[in-house]
Computed example of a mutant assay.
Amino acid sequence: MTLAMESVAPLLIIEALVKRFSGRGGRTVHAVEDVSFSIKRGTTVGLVGESGSGKTTAGRTLLRLIEPTGGKAVFDGVDIFALSERDMRAYRQRMQIIFQDPFSSLNPRMRIEAILGEALDACNYPKGAKRKERVAELLTLVGLAPEHARRFPHEFSGGQRQRIGIARALAVEPEFVVADEPVSALDVSVQAQVLNLLSDLQKRLGLTLLFIAHDLSVVEYLCDEVVVMYLGRVMERGPSRAVYANPRHPYTRALLATAPIPDPTRRREHVPLAGDIPSPINPPSGCVFRTRCPHAIAACAEIVPPADHLGGDHHVACIRHNELAQAS
């Protein structure tokens, strides 16, 4: 990461974010626990991890689509978790989301012009000819034709529907967008097109993006920084180049080992990742990754690893990271 990037001020600072749900029988689901990171203005941060890691819950909580249990989210100097619902409405236009499933997130009974019109209603955008111009502008922005405004969602392919979802998110000219696994439901051939579109829009519009994914290869292509989550906690975070070049957490290494590499001359270290992610109702003591970690020792069951600073913005939550780095 360049010095210029390091000096960019954060748009969003997340401190000790906690989200717990009440489960059956009075049990507590620990979806997100003590998550902290920041997102610099005009950059893209990748939030990655397996299904059940808490990344989608974290993203939706940051927008207060789900109310937090604890922590702070300081957006442009204001803790939005402390705002009343009425005061929060002023921030809705500045913060938007692109959903994972491009079909279920669009009302099948509405034409595209009405779907985009709903978003424009939220910011009191004038109706009539000016609105039609704005709808045409949004469709063109995401690579569709203005005449597509009269069609219904079922008349489009999955990639086209996701472009409509992106247009809807951008309709109110937000500063911050959460992209919740926006390409995971698409064919591989279409994923690259949508990723290129997001990358282009981020640069052209100066957007700040939180890109949620389970595929580290996707995040490497798109993101300036990466945050690796497991069972509700952050395992490692830092500039993408640093994390990919020198992953220090066993979980990050395991995820990277399964990510495809387009270069056949390169090989990744094989890191076994046995078993399934534990239940968030009864997470392991100490390090939550220890039950699947090939390097776990007795102390891992007793200590919740702090986020050790490795230099720059690179942090890792593993009590053995120095030993593992020397051994690799």
Rank of each mutant, 00 (worst) to 15 (best):
H270Q: 15
V78E: 13
I97V: 15
A325Q: 13
T208M: 02
R150K: 15
S7N: 11
F99S: 01
H249V: 04
F37N: 03
M110C: 11
I39L: 12
C293T: 09
R237G: 01
L210I: 08
C293K: 05
V271P: 03
E181K: 05
L324P: 07
Q160T: 02
D215S: 03
A167C: 10
P247N: 10
G52I: 04
P146Y: 11
A298M: 11
E147P: 07
A245F: 03
A167H: 09
R163D: 11
Q202K: 01
V45W: 02
R248C: 04
A122E: 15
A129I: 06
G42V: 09
T43N: 05
V218N: 04
T69Q: 08
E225A: 14
I39Q: 01
I98R: 01
K55P: 03
V35H: 09
V243F: 04
R94P: 01
F156P: 05
P264S: 02
E133K: 13
A136K: 09
E302W: 08
L65E: 09
P306H: 04
F152Q: 10
L83T: 06
A299P: 02
E133V: 10
Q162G: 09
E15P: 12
V74T: 03
P182T: 00
I303P: 06
A16N: 15
K127M: 10
F75T: 11
N322P: 00
H314Y: 12
R20F: 14
L255V: 05
M5R: 14
L47Y: 06
V142Y: 03
V228W: 03
K55E: 01
R267N: 13
V243S: 01
A307R: 14
A129N: 11
P174Q: 08
V234K: 01
I164A: 02
A114L: 13
S189A: 08
G165A: 13
D224E: 12
S285G: 10
M88K: 04
R233N: 07
R233A: 15
D187S: 03
V172H: 05
L141G: 12
G42I: 07
R248A: 11
A129G: 10
S157Y: 02
N196M: 05
P126Q: 05
H148I: 03
G232E: 03
G42K: 03
